[in-house]
């Protein structure tokens, strides 16, 4: 484990990714306690302020402290994205493994159907599901998970199939190892690694997809401090103060970059050959 961490931190992507994601998770945990202001208290006399010692990143169109709103919004954005990715991965992994296990015609039929589902752009799929369930944060989570499942199914299946063909699996079977040993000790670790890499990278897509849903008015609802919603609300006032728009945009980008880098770092660390 320490060996693995060392390898992860040795690549620039891994080191920066760990730093950013670590910082983001810290904000998610302690954000609401360290926020200097109430994120929803209105202060009509303090609107459109620039950065100052009282308001680190300035105030928005209602005089709310942008820094506090970002700290508190991290929970809505990041936790939801991680949960949605996890849910999509579990469902996708189940479908993918089943398909690989069944093989033959059933596998062919399942995969062609998955391909068909993937011809609907994931944003559009998420929009349809949210519209079906009604706009709320939980429904947005379900929508993103549903939109991710087919892609994860495809990846899990191809990984499972390629691992199954490896010589060390055949060697383990030839040694007379039990099916349980082969699956748990030989196959699982090698199947899980690429899936974790893919999942990490997908968290950044999920953050973006969530923010996009909120931006289109189909995710978090005002006055929630969700980052995509903050950008959406800032659009009407951006010529009065660019900060309202810029800071939440940077927050979204930073989280997405962090998970992207971490995913690439993990890939390099788990795959020393490359």
């Amino acid at each position: 484990m320490t060996e693995f961490l060392k390898r992860l931190l040795r690549t620039p992507q891994g080191a920066i990714g760990v730093a950013i994601v670590g910082l983001v998770l810290l904000v998610v945990i302690i954000g609401p306690w360290v926020a200097p202001h109430d994120p929803e208290s209105l202060a009509p006399l303090q609107r459109y302020k620039g950065s100052s010692l009282t308001y680190l990143l300035g105030t928005d169109q209602y005089g709310r402290d942008i820094f506090s709103r970002l700290l508190i919004g991290a929970r809505a954005t990041v936790i939801m994205a991680m949960l949605a990715t996890l849910a999509g991965t579990v469902v996708g992994a189940l479908i993918g493994t089943t398909s690989a296990f069944l093989g033959g015609r059933a596998d062919e039929a399942i995969m062609r159907t998955i391909d068909a589902v993937m011809s609907i752009p994931s944003l559009l799929f998420a929009l349809l599901v949210v519209n079906l369930l009604g706009s709320s944060i939980v429904n947005a989570l379900v929508a993103v998970a549903v939109a991710f499942a087919p892609g994860m199914a495809r990846i899990t299946r191809s990984v499972a199939l390629s691992v199954r063909k490896q010589d060390y699996i055949n060697a383990a079977i030839a040694r007379g190892e039990s099916a349980r040993f082969v699956i748990v000790r030989e196959m699982l670790p090698n199947v899980i690694a690429p899936i974790i890499v893919e999942m990490t990278i997908r968290v950044s897509f999920a953050v973006m997809l969530f923010a996009t849903l909120s931006f289109l008015g189909l995710g978090a609802q005002p006055p929630a401090a969700e980052w995509g919603l903050m950008v959406s609300e800032a659009r009407r006032y951006m010529h009065l103060s660019a900060g309202i728009l810029i800071w939440p945009s940077i927050a979204i980008a930073l989280v997405a970059i962090g998970f992207n880098l971490l995913g690439d770092g993990l890939r390099d660390a788990l795959n020393p050959r490359a």
Binding site: A211, F215, M238, A242, S249, A256
Partner: peptide, 22 residues
């Protein structure tokens, strides 16, 4: 490219309008 893949379209679009149009 890392920055590029991490910016959702609605963010780049809004910032681009602010910068190049406003």
């Amino acid at each position: 490219s890392y920055v590029g893949v991490s910016l959702p379209e609605f963010v780049t679009a809004t910032v681009a309008v602010l910068l190049f149009a406003d």
